[in-house]
Design a protein around this nucleic acid. Structure first.
Length: 267
DNA sequence: AAGAGGTTCAACCGCTATGTT
DNA sequence: AAACATAGCGGTTGAACCTCT
């Protein structure tokens, strides 16, 4: 059809990003905001495809990203949402603040799939693998009644309940499932930070990022969305690792970003 | 200690959806 | 309405890392 490639293949670098490239991209986006990814590489002085820049930013450099493995509450939420939405990773990720679709997809394929299989649950249909499948020893520690928790999935998987705007109504069904019941878990600090004393992840609107741009939790910092106004970011120019727009983000966001940058600098 | 095999995850690719002209 | 441009999504890949023998 003669459609142009997303970028000029000649002279476009591929493969892992260097700390220097990361810095350039971060600096550019903090200065100019997210717009026109196709133009970003040129303007930011990167020999990368715009697509690659977008991916790097959304999956790794965004200041609001959480790092590390999903905790059990998040994992359970992913399972529940997957039961309703299927492999719509971006939709699932939209319900988990600070997590990316890529991260969730990877976690699903490497951890959750196996976990479900071990429990005798088909990770695709969320139904028991066979009528008489019995949970293994290991799985019985997680749940002895996981099947009871999943039936809702069956129908919703094919015909997910959606609100008027297309967002599935998970709130009303987000009952604490067997896995979640175990979520006292490995990361009590993280869990308590994320969900407070709740065993159910808060899937309320205040945590949601609008699809048209990042809007940090305005309940606590009252920042404009990135699309509304990026002027507040201008002071972040020429940042060093330790002056990365500290005031702009919540503590965790700042820590995440600093960690990201510092990790990058070690490469 | 070292090699083999398995696992993880960042990044890429191709496709689709949506917006613009 | 058609053609094109761009953003975003989901599947796949491959290098780095880990574990086992």
């Amino acid at each position: 059809m003669g459609r142009q490639p997303c970028c000029d293949k000649l002279g476009v670098k591929k493969g892992p990003w260097t700390a220097e490239e990361d810095k350039k991209l971060i600096n550019f986006i903090l200065t100019n905001g997210q717009c026109c990814w196709r133009a970003v590489p040129k303007l930011a002085g990167l020999r990368r495809c715009g697509k690659s820049c977008r991916l790097r930013w959304t999956n790794y450099l965004r200041p609001d990203l959480k790092r590390g493995l999903l905790n059990e509450a998040e994992e359970q939420l992913v399972i529940d949402l997957h039961a309703r939405l299927g492999n719509r990773w971006s939709k699932i990720a939209a319900r988990l603040p600070g997590r990316t679709d890529n991260e969730i997809k990877n976690h699903w394929n490497t951890h959750i799939k196996k976990k479900l299989l071990k429990m005798g649950i088909d990770p695709v249909t969320h139904e028991p693998l066979n009528e008489e499948s019995k949970p293994t020893e290991a799985s019985s520690t997680s749940s002895s009644s996981h099947a009871n928790h999943l039936p809702e999935s069956k129908n919703n998987h094919l015909q997910s309940q959606k609100t008027d705007n297309g967002i599935p109504n998970s709130e009303e069904n987000s009952s604490c499932s067997p896995l979640t019941e175990n979520c006292s878990g490995d990361e009590p600090l993280m869990s308590s930070f994320l969900w407070g004393n709740e065993s159910i992840p808060p899937v309320d609107g205040s945590w949601e990022f609008p699809s048209d741009g990042l809007s940090f939790n305005d309940n606590n910092i009252g920042l404009p969305s990135w699309d509304e106004d990026c002027a507040w970011l201008l002071d972040c120019q020429d940042f060093g690792i330790h002056d990365f727009g500290i005031d702009c983000f919540s503590d965790v966001e700042v820590i995440n970003t600093l960690n990201t940058l510092e990790m990058g600098n070690k490469q």
